[in-house]
């Protein structure tokens, strides 16, 4: 199983790692059976145009190298984006941004975007 250099970089030095104390929404995906569990924390703010954005984001992940790297990448991609833009991030986009993932990793380990979408929807439904 060969990981790209970028995957290894994001695994060894993850971005946005850790919980947010003042999170507006938290979402967890995955299950212990697969071995990968990801939790995303988001803090929502507003940009100059008044649109809601991901002001801050954090993650906690129990999982393999790919699970940690994709969590790290997904949070980096979402940070500063409007909620609409962040919702459009897919697991495929996260994998592409990492220079690809080994095939067996797509199933279990590439769920960070799903966790992000779940967190945003949770925030939106709580607000509504």
């Amino acid at each position: 199983m060969n990981y790209s250099k970028k995957v290894l970089k994001y695994f060894a030095k993850p971005r946005n790692q850790g919980p947010l104390k003042d999170a507006d929404a938290v979402a967890t995906v995955g299950n212990p059976k697969c071995g990968d569990i990801m939790r995303i924390y988001i803090k929502v703010g507003k940009n100059k145009g008044g649109e809601e954005i991901i002001e801050n984001i954090g993650f906690e992940t129990l999982g393999c190298g790919a699970a940690i790297a994709t969590s790290s990448m997904a949070t980096e991609m979402a940070k500063g984006k409007t909620l609409k833009e962040a919702l459009a991030i897919t697991n495929q986009m996260v994998a592409d941004e990492l220079g690809g993932l080994p095939a067996p990793k797509f199933h279990c380990s590439n769920l960070a975007a799903t966790a992000l979408q779940k967190a945003i929807k949770k925030y939106q439904s709580c607000k509504a």
């Binding site: 199983m1 060894a12 095939a103 380990s109």
Partner: peptide
């Protein structure tokens, strides 16, 4: 609270070769 593949990957980055029974290393679920 640790997953095996992450462990062997980290150890490998430090030049230590080990193995795991975690599915993630073998491609199985």
């Amino acid at each position: 609270n640790v997953e095996g593949e992450g462990l062997i990957l980290s150890l490998d980055l430090e030049g230590i070769a080990t193995s795991t029974g975690s599915a993630c290393s073998s491609g199985a679920l």
